[in-house]
């Protein structure tokens, strides 16, 4: 945190603070690419996320009430009329928008943009106004309508690196911030200044059987993600809303096109 204001260059500081976006450049700009041509809609990412991030299993009844918590979900879009139909999958997760509508909404700073270009969610600060989720055009924020518990011995499989959320708290994809944290710590222990490409792998990316997803720092032009994201097939979902998402999708190529 850069909270100390140096009196000698107050004006410079003020100029810096009045600049839209605040960050000139993120320390890392964590970016994900999802190749829709490779996505089979197998939902392995959904399950992996569930296990990694201590997502509650809400049960059939709550699912029917549309209160499931899935930080990443597979959206299905059908094309054409039966029997000539095509099914398209779009894995939808928090887009970590650089100009996120959700962040401005929070009255208590429970969500803000950190120096890694991540849209963070601080559970402890959340008071549950749910405004962020309403403002989110991707609908990837999930609210804890109840306090969920894990029956014995299921609580044994909870990930100790991730907190368990109580009722009344908003939660969402963090790009597995615990793994980013660990990679940074390891880099520091090894005396490296930066994390190497491929060192951080979120649970969903790790589990994708078709390697449709890749993750890395787009500030580094040599990283895998930087190369993939420059593909001519690349696009961002709802780009016209100017939210500047950090997830880049690669278009599906149809045979008939």
């Amino acid at each position: 945190m850069r909270s100390e204001v140096d009196m000698s260059n107050v004006l410079d500081k003020l100029r810096e603070y009045s600049k839209p976006g605040y960050y000139d450049e993120f320390d890392y700009h964590w970016t994900m690419t999802i190749d829709l041509d490779r996505c089979t809609g197998c939902e392995a990412c959904v399950v992996a996320c569930q296990a990694e991030n201590n997502l509650p299993i809400v049960g059939e009844e709550r699912y029917a009430e549309a209160r499931e918590i899935k930080w990443i979900r597979i959206e299905r879009y059908w094309e054409g009329e039966f029997p000539d139909v095509k099914l398209n999958f779009i894995p939808m997760l928090c887009q970590h928008c650089d100009e996120a509508p959700c962040e401005t909404a929070c009255p208590v700073f429970a969500t803000y943009h950190n120096q890694d270009g991540l849209n963070t969610q601080i559970y402890n600060r959340c008071i549950g106004t749910r405004t962020c989720a309403v403002y989110c055009p991707y609908e990837v924020r999930y609210f804890n309508w109840f306090t969920y518990t894990w029956d014995e011995p299921l609580e044994q499989q909870l990930n100790p690196d991730v907190s368990v959320r109580e009722k009344g708290v908003m939660e969402k994809c963090t790009f597995c911030i615990q793994r980013i944290r660990m990679a940074k710590d390891n880099a520091k222990d090894d005396g490296r200044r930066r994390v190497r490409d491929g060192e951080v792998v979120p649970a969903c990316v790790q589990s994708c059987p078709t390697e449709a997803m890749s993750f890395g720092d787009s500030n580094d032009p040599d990283s895998k993600v930087s190369q993939v994201m420059n593909s001519p097939r690349g696009y961002k979902v709802l780009e016209e809303l100017n939210t500047v998402p950090s997830v880049i999708y690669l278009k599906k190529v149809h045979d008939d096109v």
Partner: peptide, 15 residues
Amino acid sequence: ALVFILPTGGRAIIS
């Protein structure tokens, strides 16, 4: 805003 530098939504710290 200056005490807690927490950028939100791509807005300036002093907006």
